[in-house]
Write a protein that binds this DNA or RNA. Sequence first.
DNA 1: GACCTGCTGCGGACTG
Length: 707
Amino acid sequence: MSFELLSEPIRKYVRDKRWESLRPIQVAAIAKILSTKENYILASRTASGKTEAAFLPILSKVNFNEQGVQVLYISPLIALINDQFHRVEDLCKYLDVEVTKWHGEAKKSLKEKLIKNPSGIVLITPESIEAMFVNAPYNAKGLFSNLKFVVIDEIHSFIGTDRGIQLKSLLSRLQDINTNKFNVVGLSATIGDYNEVKKMTGDENNTKVLRDSAAKEMNTFFKYFENKATELPSELLKDLYNETKDNKVLIFPNSRGRAEEIAVKLKRISEKTKGHPYYFSHHSSVDKELREYVEHFAKNNQRNNFCISCTSTLELGIDIGTVDEVVQVDATHSVASLIQRVGRSGRREGEKSSLILYATNKWSFLQSLACWLLFQEGFIEPVATSEKSYDILLHQTLSIVKQLSGCKRNDLVSRLLSNFAFKNVLKEDIEKIIDQLIKIDFLELIEGDLIIGIEGEKIVNSRDFYSVFKTESNFKVVNSGKTIGEIPFSPQIRVGENILLAARIWKMVDVDFKSNKIHVVSAKDGKKPLFFGSGGSIHPRVRERMLQLLYESKELPELDKAGEDILEILRKDFSRFSIKKLENDRPIILKEGKIIFYSFQGTKINRSLQFLLTKSGIGSAYTENYSSQFEISITEDQIKDLPMKLMATLEEVDLNLENTVTATPTILDFSKWGLYLPISFQCQLLKEKYFDFNATKQFIERINFTS
DNA sequence: GACCTGCTGCGGACTG
């Protein structure tokens, strides 16, 4: 029995909690963590007791009388730290162990108290670790040089991201200041491929995955409402209102503007029909306090129904309790995201989850269906992690030099070489990047020591240095002294314009371009706010599943009549092409001097194809959308030569990339630190993170244009 | 026609 293995204070905690039994993931984690020295990834869905699964055995095992912080908990969100603080503190009362929050909004006095007497457990963000290394490396040593466990929450959210590479590097640097090896326990959602998560610990061979993959039953419906306008059709909104009015609901419409539109319009229908008034919006542009109010309302409100129209801000593990129903408007961008969203509903033990998927155009509908079917079939996108993140390496190079207040070049090189975040980066590449940093005055060589250079000081001492992601600058929206949220600069920002924000309608009465503030008053009608975003990328398998859907006769009982009809129309449209092999055959339509070509490929391959077409001098029009459709200006008899032409251009891709980076440096906008790299490294970055020429090459080699 | 994430240290004004 796992329970017997726990220390007495922890057993008392479990008894006092009056839990009927330990959850499967807790039983497994207790047995393993207490009896072995491995790293563990605990994978199960939200609210299945993962936090306790990690902390019950860790608190039983660790001797907190030792000097220094013993357990470091790392979270991607401040909100999650604040959530978990209460739970962990509750547990620690039984042990007399101090728990300290350490993030940008945490109390300074409590941080200072910890510095005077380093002990217990610290809850921190990656950026705060970075800041400590840069500004107060002696604190990092004083606090974190005797760690026994590092717990990483929502570890899946770091995979395949720059922030994940940064975190790996920080873990490596933490291990460097520890004499003994600490263990890593990662808490993960259910995902497709655990190999990358295991690599996060820096020691994948000694990392085991404990999974609780018990699936939930789900009621699912697809609903189709064709829409060609910018605003949603009123029939859809009426239907959505009726489906949601008597429940606790989350609606995910994929964009902040749309989230506002839905919140405001449903609220209006509810006012007219005397329904409940609890309609909210929740996304990054809604003021933090308002968002916290909404989270609190959802979590603590047993009696009233509510409806939150939101983006991925409510996809991660912030505790908002359980909802009855999840609504997705138009296709998710990934199967993984769909699963996370679905997981928000019916979370009480034994309760069925409920999911309604609306679609407003046929391609979004098809993508939505594909994601749903892949989920049923057990597929979740694997995420590739770049091990040649030269941009993050550049950032970490500056950070390490600052941490050490200067160091020998050899020392710097060997630290970077042994950092597992940059495992596949060659020594000569590191040398070249250091040379470049010296050249642009980010580093300076003085009497054999490398120190931060004049230009580097500006960068390293700025508040913006600690994160590896970019953020847009915004206008603050204020109503009689109270902040509502913020919106990016756009032509829409003008006195007299009306906008939707935080589920309400506002008129702009004053725009202050000096302090970037917009003063607003309540209004009756307005437009959804304009946001610009560059989206994530869609996995090829999703697109391939869409193609497959068109050529299989599978019946789908979850569809409404309109959905059935539209699927039949799509299947009929595409039955004219003789698609046999889904991997190779791709439909084309001949059309006076050009062809319409459906790639049914993921974002990166589509991007690469478009690049190769342009560089081959072939006119083409393509915008990343659900249909992955290209319009290519060639004639019928030129089609057979097309693959050969693209392959020839592919041979010279490096030269082509260099020209592109020189002509349009904004193509590197996805990378915050990439612009300081030598140009050849910038091209490598594009190849690793923006395009996918290897997969594109394979696609071109096997493609069979089918008319 | 796309999402999200975080943040030091200092000086000066103000409050209790």
